[in-house]
């Protein structure tokens, strides 16, 4: 059964019919937003059953759309939190990828700006590495990008999509060794992205992110995970009641090969390790439970089949 990410948008009236249907079909609801009288569900559902969900949602005026970034956590790496980079373009891009279902975090570097003075510290490096992909938003000059990129990518293990002022070909030429994705002509700008050509650029960034993540998904499928992160999310919700007391918008953030649990590590790590998934297999057997560099959260890194010999 292949699960695919979709978003359901509809009225709040009788939306539990859709929620129950998704759960009965073996799907998982990753995020649920209730906005006034509307409800938005980001979920994973079996590919063959999407049409069925559409049919059942039709009388409720519900809409089902493909959102390939559901279940991914993206780091939008901004060179600083100054007016030079915020709110445009950093926030515009971070907000746009959220519309396609991603959970995006803005990572702003303490010493990102400039050419010679640019740097990346260990905390920033570790926080970026906790994501599925890093989108680097660089400036307008190829000289600067060429000079500072080796410093800013040092120690980064996740795929990088590089956005910068020069065109795509120039970016490809100046970055050595190459990164996973490039989007040209998106450097620093001081206006809101609302014109058609600017929205097209945002679409181009999303398309590049999707392309790079698809490649990562294929890699994961070659050596499948011992347990699906979405399933683990449901399990933690069911068996760790403290998660319901977390006020964060996403107490459990699903990643492609893991989960961020927004509970304190010292208090809950042991409880999570001992959490039984099925037939006596504990979460600690199929995953590494490590402290996150983001606050005192817990990061669950699910191990692949080749390491555990188990697929649940």
């Amino acid at each position: 059964m292949t699960l695919v990410p979709i978003t359901y948008k509809g009225g709040i009236y009788q939306h539990d019919i859709v929620t129950d249907l998704i759960e009965d079909l073996g799907g998982y609801i990753i995020q649920k937003h209730v906005i006034a009288a509307d409800v938005v569900l980001q979920c994973f559902v079996p590919r063959d059953d999407i049409e069925l969900i559409r049919q059942i949602a039709k009388p409720l005026f519900g809409e089902v759309t493909d959102t390939p970034l559901v279940g991914t956590e993206i780091a939008i790496v901004s060179m600083s939190l100054e007016i030079h980079h915020l709110p445009h373009p950093s926030c515009d891009i971070a907000e746009y990828v959220r519309r396609i279902g991603a959970k995006s975090n803005m990572v702003s570097l303490a010493r990102g700006p400039g050419k010679r003075i640019a740097g990346l510290n260990d905390e920033e490096r570790d926080v970026i590495n906790e994501h599925d992909i890093a989108v680097y938003l660089m400036g307008n000059f190829e000289t600067c990008i060429e000079y500072k990129m080796p410093t800013l990518r040092r120690g980064i293990e996740v795929p990088i999509v590089l956005c910068g002022g020069p065109d795509k070909e120039t970016l490809k030429k100046i970055i050595d060794p190459p990164v996973d994705g490039y989007v040209g002509n998106v450097g620093r700008f001081m206006r809101r992205t609302k014109e058609a050509d600017e929205i097209d650029k945002l679409d181009e960034i999303v398309a590049e992110i999707i392309r790079v993540l698809e490649k990562k998904r294929e890699e994961i499928q070659k050596d499948p995970l011992s347990v699906s992160p979405a399933r683990l999310m449901g399990l933690i919700k069911e068996k760790v009641p403290a998660i319901h007391g977390v006020t964060s918008p996403t107490p459990l953030t699903v990643q492609m090969a893991g989960l961020r649990v927004k509970l304190p590590y010292d208090t809950f790590a042991l409880e999570l390790r001992d959490l039984e998934i099925e037939d006596g297999i504990k979460l600690g057997d199929v995953s590494d439970i490590v402290p996150s560099r983001m606050r005192d959260y817990i990061l669950v890194k699910i191990l692949p089949f080749s390491e555990t010999n188990t697929v649940i």
Binding site: F141, E142, T143, P166, G187, R188, F189, M190
Partner: peptide, 19 residues
């Protein structure tokens, strides 16, 4: 020296002064 960079900075200068 970078023509594309000059174009972007022309736009930035215009936007900031206008704002």
């Amino acid at each position: 020296p970078e023509p594309l960079g000059a174009e972007y900075y022309r736009q930035i200068t215009n936007d900031v002064l206008l704002d």
